[in-house]
């Protein structure tokens, strides 16, 4: 009897050991090696992307940092004195251009997204067609929008001429699908219980949307607008078609002919044979990178600031 107990106990201990023998590290080295390899693969993918970005920044810094001075911002361009030439009309052109873009995309983007997300009857074929088209438009090359702007805004229906306003309208159409998609995401992230709650109190749909859904979606929409603006700043191709000149030596006026924009100006300087102009182009790139970094930071900050778990 007294012998039986330890015997049985050791049997149980052996059974337990059989169960637990594989819980220790190193029991499955094959999986471990596989895991490391996979992680390396992911890291190298990230690395390649990072190297590309860092290379651009490094190049712009090495080439252009020394050229960044007050003159770069306030001087007019010059075709024969690169050391004194600046981006003044291009910077002013971009600022006006973007102001126009913002004025157009905020009401249009928010309006379209609100309609599609909260008012459109999705069983209707035309609403589905609109939806599909917007998604496709987000992937259309920007030069196509340039041709559209040239045909319908600069000439044709609106006949604005080669003015900043026409550039703004063209770029606005270009980035509008992005704004609409981002705004729809933002609206969709607002739980429907808010809309239901407001409507159960006797609010009309319009009241519930205006007072409850849109304010809650506003930070997300703003993030979309900011990212669209970041893209708009960098666009050069459609602007070339709708009249942004590569070389302008006077300040632009929103409704007047003749303007330039930062990326267009950089394109002009970079195409010149003299080394000094290349430095100037690099300095311009540096300025654009800083501006874009700043804008994207605002978007990230906004997202973090207003992020909400419902």
């Amino acid at each position: 009897m007294s012998q039986g107990i330890p015997k049985r106990a050791s049997g149980a201990a052996m059974a337990a050991a059989a169960v637990t023998q594989n819980i220790y590290k190193g029991a499955n080295n094959k999986a471990l090696v596989g895991g490391i390899m996979f992680r390396l693969l992911l890291l190298s993918a990230l690395g390649i992307a990072m190297i590309a970005i860092l290379a651009v920044i490094a190049w712009a810094l090495v080439e252009g940092a020394a050229r960044v001075n007050v003159g770069l911002f306030v001087n007019n361009p010059s075709s024969f004195r690169p050391e004194e030439a600046g981006y003044r009309p291009a910077i002013l052109g971009t600022v006006q251009l973007i102001a126009g873009v913002i004025l157009l995309i905020v009401p249009l983007g928010v309006g379209a997204a609100t309609y599609l997300e909260l008012f459109a009857d999705r069983t209707r074929w035309y609403n589905r067609l609109i939806e599909l088209n917007i998604q496709n438009l987000a992937g259309v090359p920007s030069i196509v929008f340039g041709i559209l702007g040239l045909a319908f805004i600069v000439r044709g229906v609106f006949d604005l001429g080669f003015v900043v306003a026409a550039g703004s309208a063209t770029i606005a159409i270009l980035v509008l699908p992005t704004v609409i998609l981002a705004s729809r995401e933002a609206i969709r992230a607002v739980p429907s219980s808010l809309l239901d709650g407001a409507m159960a109190l006797g609010a009309t749909r319009l009241q519930a949307v205006r007072k409850m859904v849109l304010p809650s979606a506003a930070p997300g929409m703003l993030t979309g607008v900011i990212l669209a603006v970041a893209r708009a700043i960098g666009e050069a191709a459609p602007l070339l078609l709708v009249g942004a000149a590569t070389f302008v030596t006077f300040d632009p006026n929103f409704w007047q002919d003749g303007y330039s924009a930062l990326p267009v100006m950089i394109y002009n300087y970079a195409g010149r044979p003299q080394e000094e102009f290349h430095t100037l182009a690099a300095a311009g790139v540096l300025v654009m990178l800083v501006v874009l970094f700043f804008i994207n930071s605002i978007a990230v900050w906004l997202r973090a600031r207003y992020e909400r778990t419902w």
Binding site: S193, G197, A198, L201, G202
Partner: peptide, 30 residues
């Protein structure tokens, strides 16, 4: 109809506002 017949939902769905504004939302809106 919904002004007369209120509803409380399964999951509490307060508005993302202050306690005061939550209660005042209905009377203000109406």
């Amino acid at each position: 109809v919904r002004k007369l017949i209120g509803m409380v939902f399964q999951k509490p769905n307060p508005f993302p506002k202050s306690i005061y504004d939550n209660v005042a939302f209905g009377p203000q809106t109406l």
